[in-house]
Amino acid sequence: MSQLLEATFWSATVAGGLRLATPLIYASIGETFAQRAGVLNLGLEGYMIIGALTSLYVADPTVAPLGFLVGGLAGMLLAAFMVLLSIRLYANQVVVGFGLTILGIGTTGYIFRVTTDVGGRDRQVSLPSEVDIPLLSDIPWLGDALFGHSWYTWLALGLVLVTGFIASRTIFGLEVKAVGEDPDAAAARGVDVVRVRTIATLMSGFLGGLGGAALMLGSVGRFQPWLTANRGFIALIVIIMASWSIWGAAVGAFVFGFFEALGFNLNNVFVDVPVEGLNAIPFFVALLILTASARWARMPRGLGENYVPTV
């Protein structure tokens, strides 16, 4: 119990939270773009897992940054199916999303088993070292919590700034919002709805793939079937909590990561409490947040509706 009063417990939890949040940050900022444009990617889970496997298979013989990038491209490839089926052929987004999630899990499971010899060497990567920021990392408590992270985390935070800027301060960001709220009105004002939605969906695939790659290369290091374990769906909760704001999504991802880390770390404090009960904490918090979000969140009005150009 006394551990709870120590600063190191909390700095370790905050640090762990940021590490666990990293894949969610990538996935949720990309998906925020797609949803702001009115496209619901329930296939995010699929984008993530295909990104995770691809990044490992590329990074194992080459280098991690290349694997990371190709992981993003693999996610984008899967998202291209979403573009084709839902944006071009008007198939229902929910149905296609579930299909892509199953396709991602099935394909990665298949490739993993086909390429893994029984008793052979597992493909794996060594986890990255922490990139310390001089001076800042030496601040006593905050230094441990905030400034000792791998470059995957730093890049995620950098992308939050960049995409947040794009979403709120550029013409493209405005177009995204317009086609998500009322595609017909946007089209009437000369916005190419299909093009904007396509770009936003591919972004979601790329960033979802990067999220899976960050999970693989940044904190797991080896593949197992269905490695992502519903993180793609957790990212959807994060987006709702953030009310479709990019900055908010980063905060939301951290909140979930923090409680996940808290659940883990509390296992050492409350030894008598069942592990499973403590591990349920982040999901319980997610349920509370999901319920409470109705008070402040407002979803894009055209979300989930296909846009059919009137000729």
Binding site: G99, L100, I102, L103, I105, G106, T107, G109, Y110, R113, V114, P225
Partner: peptide, 11 residues
């Protein structure tokens, strides 16, 4: 691998 049937079901 039996995952092939997952792929077919998804398709």
């Amino acid at each position: 691998p039996a995952s092939l049937s997952d792929i077919i079901q998804a398709l």
